[in-house]
Lab assay of single mutants.
Amino acid sequence: WKVTVKGVEYTFDNPEEAKKFAEELAKKKGGQIHYKDGEFQVH
């Protein structure tokens, strides 16, 4: 499971962890999460 933040990729074994990480980042940066092709992208 991948989380991509401004072109930087983070990989997680667990989808729950990936989702949590993406949500935290989106909150911090005031961005939005897009889920696409099996990965979370924070913009």
Rank of each mutant, 00 (worst) to 15 (best):
W1H: 04
V3I: 04
H43V: 15
Y35G: 04
K27Q: 12
W1I: 05
H43P: 04
K29M: 15
E24I: 09
T11Y: 14
G30H: 07
K19Y: 14
A26Y: 04
H34R: 08
Y35I: 08
K6L: 13
E24R: 10
G38V: 03
K36T: 09
V3F: 03
Y35T: 04
A18R: 01
K19D: 02
V3K: 00
D13R: 07
E9K: 07
A18N: 00
K19S: 06
V3N: 00
V42E: 03
Q41S: 10
A26N: 03
A22C: 12
Y10W: 13
V8E: 13
E9N: 06
E23W: 09
E9D: 05
K6V: 10
G30E: 05
E23P: 00
E9C: 15
N14G: 08
E9A: 12
E23G: 04
K20L: 11
E17G: 06
P15N: 06
V8G: 06
E39M: 08
E17K: 08
V5N: 08
E9I: 14
Q32T: 14
Y35L: 07
K36Y: 10
L25Y: 13
W1C: 08
W1L: 03
L25D: 02
G30D: 06
E39V: 13
F21I: 01
K29F: 15
K29N: 15
T4F: 08
Q32Y: 15
Q32S: 13
V3D: 01
K36M: 11
G7D: 09
F21C: 11
V8Q: 12
K28Q: 12
E23S: 06
K6N: 15
K20Y: 08
P15T: 03
V3R: 00
K28A: 11
H43A: 08
P15V: 14
G7V: 01
D13N: 11
K20Q: 11
E16D: 11
D37Q: 05
K36V: 13
A18V: 01
T4L: 10
E39W: 07
A22Y: 02
V3T: 01
K27R: 13
K28P: 05
N14K: 08
G30Y: 06
V42C: 08
E17I: 07
W1N: 02
V3W: 01
G30Q: 06
E23T: 09
F21D: 00
V5M: 15
D37F: 02
K29P: 08
H34F: 14
V3C: 07
K28H: 10
G30R: 06
E24N: 08
V8M: 13
A26M: 06
Q41W: 09
A26C: 13
L25W: 13
E39Q: 08
F12G: 00
N14H: 07
E9F: 09
D37C: 13
F12S: 00
Q41V: 13
P15M: 15
G38S: 06
P15I: 15
E24L: 12
T11F: 14
K20M: 10
D37G: 04
K27I: 11
T11G: 05
I33N: 04
A18Q: 01
Y35V: 07
F40S: 02
T11C: 14
V3G: 01
Q41L: 10
Y35N: 04
H34A: 10
Y35Q: 05
A18H: 01
A22K: 02
V5Q: 04
V42P: 04
K29Q: 14
K36I: 13
V42R: 02
E24S: 09
Q32D: 08
G30I: 02
A22I: 06
E39P: 03
Y35W: 08
G7A: 03
T11N: 11
F21P: 00
Q32M: 10
Q32F: 14
A18Y: 04
K6P: 07
K6Y: 15
V5D: 13
K19I: 09
F21T: 01
V5C: 15
E9Q: 12
G38Y: 10
H34L: 12
E9P: 04
K27H: 12
E23Q: 10
G7K: 02
G30P: 05
I33T: 04
E17A: 12
A26K: 05
L25F: 09
I33C: 09
D13L: 07
K28R: 09
I33Q: 02
V42D: 03
A22P: 00
K2P: 01
P15L: 15
E39I: 13
P15F: 15
V8S: 07
E16C: 14
Y10K: 01
A26P: 01
N14I: 02
K6S: 14
H34G: 06
G38A: 05
A18L: 03
I33L: 07
E17L: 09
K36Q: 11
T11H: 14
K29D: 15
F40A: 03
V42K: 02
E16A: 11
L25Q: 09
H43F: 13
F12Y: 01
T4A: 03
E16V: 11
F40W: 15
V5E: 12
Y10T: 02
E16Q: 11
E17S: 11
V8I: 12
G30A: 05
A26L: 08
E24W: 14
E9V: 14
Y10D: 00
F40D: 03
K6M: 14
F12M: 00
D13S: 12
F40T: 03
A18S: 01
A26T: 07
E16M: 12
F40G: 03
K36G: 07
Q41K: 08
E23F: 10
K19M: 11
A18W: 04
V42M: 04
K6G: 14
E17Y: 05
N14A: 06
E17P: 01
E24F: 13
K20R: 12
E16K: 10
K19W: 13
G38M: 07
E23R: 08
E39Y: 06
K19P: 00
K27D: 10
F21V: 02
F21E: 00
G30S: 04
F12C: 06
N14P: 00
E16H: 12
L25A: 07
K19Q: 11
G7C: 09
K19H: 09
T11I: 14
P15D: 04
K27L: 13
G30N: 09
Y10N: 00
Q41R: 08
V8H: 11
I33D: 04
